[in-house]
Design a protein around this nucleic acid. Structure first.
Lengths: 165, 165
DNA sequence: GCCATTTAGTTGCATATCCATTTATTTGTT
DNA sequence: AACAAATAAATGGATATGCAACTAAATGGC
């Protein structure tokens, strides 16, 4: 690049229209941008006192009653220590509860309360509506393709990490 | 696998193989999972004292010397207040500096130091190598497709947000 | 030219996250 | 059975992030 033609417009970008160079062509960058946009819109869409993790966590506890904090952490890919204040909040809201496992007294089993089940159903409806909207806007064929490619990229990182070369 | 048909294996997921239901089919969920995997691998790949934002920020300041904190924040899609401690760190490392704008004495113009330029070049080489690796693992055709679809999804959210209905 | 409004950056506060350490309990080895 | 090693959850400390409030400076209306 930088042949001659234009002698460089002299950026001088005090404000807008920045030069991104090939940052825009990098998969990691594009992924991050889109993830941020998604997380922001999702938060706005779900409403003010919604916290990230509410939907996924309630859904997972509902589908897997009695799962341990460790199992939950693995499922949502977060450190177990991250879950501690979050589960405190769920208990405080009366949506979930910890019960000491009889089989292993170190572990906690997680269960939804009746209110938790109701809440889970509400979130589910709302998230499904958004997913439907996205599939509509994007085209369901493309939405499917995007999911497939994201899973493949996820697999790539799993492979790269396990090698550790 | 013991028998045929299996009348519902009775989850009992004290540990592994949880039920995800159709969580796996949801674009938002898959996007989040892959983003987390990407961010983790990236951190591990870049090394211990690497912070998220180093690469993108140095790259943007290099390409747009004199840009303001506001412009940078918009470019990386973060709140301006997030930048404050981060830019303090860059100055402390001697990679970048703030200069009060003469045109607008509220604003700071951002520039790289010579050390910052060297660091930016190092990051650039390393990130490019990873990008190349990803394109190789995923197939460059698919990597391109993935970028395209991510940008389209990003556009969808831009559209949905601006409506605010 | 003056004052209200807007704007750039900062600070304070709350949440989210990970890592290292700690505590209670379990498991494995002898 | 006894004890060392491993493990589940919690705690403490650090970074990352956004929002609200604040300060200093610029802008616009009159």
């Amino acid at each position: 690049m930088t042949a001659k033609s234009k002698p460089a417009p002299i950026p001088e970008p005090g404000d807008n229209d920045l030069q991104f160079g090939d940052l825009d062509e990098m998969l990691g960058i594009v992924l991050q941008r889109t993830f941020i946009a998604t997380a922001r819109y999702f938060k706005e869409y779900m409403g003010d006192d919604f916290r990230p993790g509410f939907f996924t966590t309630l859904s997972l506890i509902e589908k897997n009653p009695g799962l341990t904090q460790k199992a939950l952490a693995a499922a949502i890919r977060r450190d177990t220590s991250t879950l501690v204040p979050f589960l405190n909040k769920l208990e405080e809201l009366g949506w979930a509860e910890r019960r000491r496992s009889q089989a292993d007294k170190r572990a906690h089993e997680l269960y939804l309360t009746p209110a938790g089940h109701r809440q889970a159903a509400r979130f589910d409806t709302k998230v499904r509506a958004l997913e439907a909207r996205l599939a509509e806007e994007l085209g369901s064929r493309q939405a499917q393709q995007l999911r497939r490619l994201l899973r493949e990229l996820d697999d790539v990182f799993a492979r790269l990490s396990s090698q550790a070369d």
